[in-house]
Design a protein around this nucleic acid. Structure first.
Lengths: 239, 239
DNA sequence: CTCCTAAACTTGTATATACATCTTAACGCT
DNA sequence: AGCGTTAAGATGTATATACAAGTTTAGGAG
């Protein structure tokens, strides 16, 4: 841990709340006390507390202090941008990923629109199924702009693409737009998933952007309805 | 507009982006320039820009500036905490709300757990259906702690409960936890909704908290799958 | 003892300064 | 012209101070 003092403080406090060193309902030390403890300024402590607040760890009460919230209640993720890996960690059953297709394509019009590119752009196409307890319940269709991630391999796709992108390539995902709908099963769904009588799938469309605000990935994640669950923590920012 | 300079600046800039005064892809003036223009300090400008960034209006690029993002692409709401009213504004069809039930109850065990209260607590129970283009497609079951909102009326429920709570009572909603799943229709769903052949509904469970971090409302919003759509903007906070 | 006030402590906002890090453009040397 | 260095300008981080506003506690007046 070298620089970014406020992120370090954020992570240390968050860790203590996850561990239970701070119990839900408790007041954490005041900003002044924390500043003394960490030998830093109050503003730096405030930045750390703002992060804790945004991520649902605490609620700040003017004049009183910051109370610890109950983050375990629904065991919800840090909010938004949930990758399959995080999901798998929560579902304790047997989990397995199968790479069904791995190729380079030139996108057809529908994908050109989703990825905001043209027919000459080279795009990775990755189709994966996720198996829980012996049933194929999730179909992930990933499309990644090749110029950002030239050396992808099938092996990496069997692990975690995100870990590769962030740790190996040093790219940073900055934000994503997500859309959730329910749609009739396609032929593709029927062939790759164990439909188990369901006629519809939950479709999560994810548009992922890098730090420079360039779109680099479009993902369509198709879930069998009975295995789908989305949880979110949302703070009212303004108004 | 009296106090809170940074919120004022945030809203003015956000408005200009929605109007198109700033076009997507453009760089907005630098923090230094804005500080001069608004006759304030750079830190205050930075607070406003942080809000814009969190709400998906801009992307900050170190060393370069802040580029305007395309917020219209999916016409997504400000993220999270979407009330029915906002939803209705987007769906241009004919929209109507019917209050099916309005009463005071003492919660049974399931609701006690959801609302974290006991059997003696007084709770408003409000059942409403939402009609789009002549079809009843959403069933909203609201449970509100009476101690926070003693004077609710059936008439208010026909309008917007949120507007009443925030504008009339002066209460502020600070955050919410949301869960989305797909579940089989209940008898209640069948009787209140025009199922149109669907055997399942999308269930959105919403736990709403006030400024003092006290839970005051539990809402179960049950949607016919073909009319359900959830959009979200998520920024990767940390790590 | 009760009630009111004042003080102490909390978080919120605004401002100022200094330096680090990154991007871009200008400059000058070869 | 081409290349590398430098400088200017942008955002990011850390610190300091002052005051505003909400909460709690202590203490005093009656």
């Amino acid at each position: 841990m070298k620089k970014n003092k406020y992120k370090y403080i954020y992570e240390e406090l968050a860790q203590q709340m996850k561990e239970g060193t701070f119990q839900p309902g408790e007041l954490i030390p005041s900003e002044h006390e924390l500043a003394g403890k960490y030998e830093t300024s109050r503003e730096t402590i405030r930045k750390a507390l703002t992060l804790l607040s945004q991520n649902g760890y605490i609620q700040k009460l003017r004049g009183k202090g910051s109370v610890v919230l109950d983050t375990n209640r629904a065991s919800f993720p840090i909010s938004g941008l949930v990758s399959f890996k995080e999901l798998a960690d929560q579902m304790s059953g047997t989990v397995h990923t199968t790479v069904e297709e791995f190729s380079t394509i030139h996108p057809e019009p529908y994908l050109q629109h989703q990825l905001q590119c043209n027919a000459k752009t080279e795009v990775w196409k990755v189709i994966r199924t996720r198996t829980f307890d012996g049933e194929r319940v999730i179909l992930d269709k990933d499309y990644l702009l090749k110029k950002h991630i030239p050396a992808l391999t099938k092996d990496i796709c069997g692990q975690s693409i995100y870990a590769y992108i962030e740790q190996e390539l040093g790219l940073t995902i900055s934000f994503a737009k997500k859309e959730i709908t329910v749609e009739p099963c396609t032929q593709e769904d029927m062939s790759f998933l164990d439909a188990n009588g369901f006629s519809h799938v939950v479709v999560v469309r994810n548009y992922v952007y890098l730090e420079d605000a360039s779109l680099f990935q479009y993902t369509e994640s198709r879930h069998r309805p009975d295995k789908f669950r989305f949880v979110d923590f949302a703070r009212r920012h303004i108004k």
